[in-house]
Amino acid sequence: MRTLGLIGGMSAESTTTYYQALNRRVRERLGGLHSAQLVLWSVDFAPIAQMQADGDWDGAGAALAEAATRLEGAGAEAILVCTNTMHKVAPAIEAATGVPLIHIGDATALAVRARGGARPLLLATRFTMEQDFYKDRLRARGVEALVPDQADRDRLHAIIYDELCQGMVESRSKREVLAMIAKAAGADSVIFGCTEVGLLLSQADVELPVIDSTLVHVEAGVDFMLS
């Protein structure tokens, strides 16, 4: 088994999901007492979130690039960044290391196409929904993402940062996000494009096919480890 390096903590809530899902999937595929061979660098999210809010993506990229080099030094043979939004700084991470970065956007786009989708509703942070770094990655693989309207984008962003990243799962917020999905005209699927959205909703809540970016990213990481 090859060693996977995780850059986590953004948020710690979803990084817990990554750790559990990686180990569970390895056990399912190998059986018995097998578990995932991992090294984890978990950042303090508060300074990173402030950099995001300030538009200091160079600073955020430098912080995650340093984390990646530490993981490589600890034996990681590939890097998994346990967040969608911070893939905005993927080029800085890739430039800092000699090991591959397993990109969440690639894994998500492939999963959308595998489920017969091409026009998914993207539910994510405001950065991911409004900037091009993620949507362009999907578009390169034949996936044209739709996003909620401005008011819903603002509300979803607040739900993610003020609630889910802090371990709060509110029934009112769940109803609000389901309403966003219900009015998404033309969507053929739904991307949980923030690693925390899966803490709030599941496929059982949504009629359209759901692509949980966390879980498909995990699958890509396990494919690498076991290849």
Results as ranks from 00 to 15, higher is better:
D136L: 13
R24V: 06
W57L: 10
D58C: 00
L178M: 08
A90C: 04
L215Y: 08
F45R: 13
V43L: 15
I159Y: 12
S35D: 09
F127V: 14
A124N: 11
Q150I: 01
A158F: 00
L30E: 14
G8Q: 11
Q50L: 12
R153N: 09
L164Q: 09
E170F: 02
G59Q: 07
K135N: 07
A62I: 02
V147I: 15
M10P: 03
L123E: 10
R139E: 08
V89W: 08
V39A: 12
V169P: 06
A62F: 00
P209M: 07
L164M: 07
I79Q: 02
V81Y: 01
Q150E: 15
G9N: 12
A65N: 13
M168Q: 14
A60Y: 05
I102L: 15
C82D: 10
Q50G: 02
M51F: 02
V26L: 11
P148F: 03
Y19R: 12
T128M: 06
M168P: 00
G193E: 10
A62C: 01
A140H: 07
V222S: 12
R141T: 07
S173K: 10
F224G: 11
T15A: 11
A151F: 00
T85C: 04
G221D: 07
H87P: 08
V99C: 02
F133H: 14
I159G: 07
V222H: 12
E207P: 01
K174D: 04
I181M: 03
H103L: 06
S14P: 00
A185I: 03
I104Y: 04
G32N: 12
D54W: 01
L121N: 09
S227H: 12
G31W: 11
T17L: 13
L64Y: 05
L201D: 07
R137G: 00
A220C: 02
G117I: 03
A140G: 09
L33W: 10
D56P: 00
M168L: 13
M10F: 05
L215Q: 15
D106T: 13
I93H: 11
I104F: 04
F127T: 15
K135I: 02
G8V: 10
G98C: 05
K174M: 08
E77L: 03
D136F: 04
Y161V: 04
L80S: 13
G186T: 03
V112Y: 01
E176D: 14
A151L: 08
A90H: 06
V81L: 15
E66S: 10
A107E: 14
M129P: 02
A158L: 05
A96P: 00
V89H: 08
A109K: 13
I191C: 05
I181T: 02
E13C: 03
L226C: 07
P91F: 06
A62P: 01
R139K: 14
Q52T: 07
E207S: 15
M10D: 05
G8C: 08
L22H: 09
A65L: 06
A111W: 07
P47Q: 15
D162N: 13
E94Q: 15
D149P: 04
V89K: 14
V169K: 07
E144G: 05
T125W: 03
R155L: 12
S171G: 00
S11R: 10
S11D: 08
A36L: 07
L138Y: 09
L178V: 06
A118G: 13
A151V: 02
A158P: 00
P91I: 05
E94T: 14
A107R: 14
W57T: 08
L4D: 10
I211F: 06
